[in-house]
Amino acid sequence: MNEVRKPRDPVTGHIKALAKGFKYLLEPNRMTLDYPAETMKLPPNYRGFFTVDDKKCIGCSMCEMVCPPEAITMVPRIIGEGGKTLPAPEGEKETKGPKRTKRPVVNWGKCIFCYFCVDVCPVDAFIPTQVHDVAFEKDKDYRPSYEEYLKPPEEPYKNAKKVVSKADLKRGVSYEPAP
């Protein structure tokens, strides 16, 4: 390894460093995303905000049990009010009459997006999205009610240009318009 270590002659060393710097001054290696004007389309397994499918969920509380930061609370919910029945999940018998059950609500102030809850769900009831940049105006907004939680998360900058990142031999990361 000693040949790597050998001190470089100061004159050539400085000239080489300056030449490299000058080269990158002329051809900068920028990989920045012009964020609000352009937004990224993220890979399909990216872990963003998620919501729950009310019809699929069976209220088993597994997601509440596995949640590492204890961000999920189960709220009481009555389905099939007034004798009406909600359509049952595929392959299950329809139940008649009102039924007490529970549904998960996520506190976004606590959630760490590990997706343990999404993966532990025995009926795969969570609907993952790739939205990751939601801003909350008030402290209360972190803790949605169940009805608010059911709405799919709103993506900011809807009119922005969608790009995907791509490995680039010259610049490391480059962006091209999303398909």
Binding site: G13, A167, K170
Partner: peptide, 22 residues
């Protein structure tokens, strides 16, 4: 593979501007 090739090239640049800088 693209990223690895990019990094190999960049390591040479690092050598000039930083690692072997007097």
């Amino acid at each position: 593979e693209t990223v690895l090739q990019y990094m190999e090239r960049r390591l040479k640049d690092y050598e000039d501007i930083w690692v072997k800088n007097p």
